[in-house]
Structure formats: C-alpha cells, structure tokens
C-alpha cells in the first residue's frame, strides 16, 4: 500500500464526485500520507475470509469482557 500522489488524489476525488484543484490535491496527498504509511504493513496481508463483522464477534466474545 503506497500513499497516493497528488495526481492520483485528484483523479480519485474526481471519481468520488467532489473535484479538487491541484493545490488541494497536493495538500491532501501530504496529509493522508502518514496514515497510508502506518497501515502499509497490514494492507494486503489479511486472510481471505476475514469480514468486518469479525470485530463485533470478538467484541462480544467472553474473552473480551
């Protein structure tokens, strides 16, 4: 998982339906970069059959309480 460039940010924002100018795209790329870097070790490593609902399963399990 690599942080998006300003050019990629601009394209993604356009697709999202909220276009941004070049300056804003550069600012966004800089701002969200650390989150991408921080999550890089996890991204692309998750098991196939893992669903978001696993969180609730773990949260409500006996072990959680």
């Amino acid at each position: 998982m690599t942080r998006p460039t300003a050019k990629e940010v601009k394209a993604i924002a356009d697709v999202a339906g909220v276009p941004v100018d070049n300056e804003t795209a550069a600012r966004i790329a800089n701002s969200i970069g650390p989150a991408f870097d921080g999550f890089a070790a996890i991204a692309g490593t998750l098991q196939f059959d893992l669903e978001p609902s696993t969180f609730v399963v773990v949260q409500t399990s006996k072990a959680a309480r």
Binding site: M1, V9, I12, I42, L50, P52, V58, A64
Partner: peptide, 24 residues
C-alpha cells in the same frame, strides 16, 4: 473532510476487516 475523498474503498475496507484481528 476532503482527506477522506482520496482514500480508495479497498483501503478503507481493509482497515475495517483488520479491526477484529487487532482487538483480539
């Protein structure tokens, strides 16, 4: 708010899928 426009859905969903693993 604009920051969220630039995060691909797959990355968002990976963060959601990992949540249970991280809690465990």
């Amino acid at each position: 708010l604009q920051n969220g426009l630039a995060i691909p859905a797959v990355n968002y969903l990976e963060a959601m899928r990992w949540r249970g693993v991280a809690l465990a």
